[in-house]
Amino acid sequence: MGILMTIITVIYYLLIAAVCLILITNLIRERKWEKEILYIVVLMPFLLRLLRLK
């Protein structure tokens, strides 16, 4: 069980990193300021989890 949980956890963190990259890419490409703010707000919890802070 421990090994399975570790594998799932690693995949989970890789997914979070991928989502962060997609959000940052979209933020750079975005032209509307409202959506830029939205991307930054959405990015917060993903970064906090990726950094293992929350």
């Binding site: 830029e36 703010i37 990015l43 917060m44 906090l48």
Partner: peptide, 25 residues
């Protein structure tokens, strides 16, 4: 202008991330 705006928003976001991150840590 768009790049400056993005940098300002990102800096504000980073400040929020750092302050909340310190609190959680």
């Amino acid at each position: 202008n768009a790049m400056i705006r993005k940098l300002v928003f990102s800096s504000l976001g980073l400040a929020l991330l750092i302050s909340s991150g310190i609190s959680f840590h």
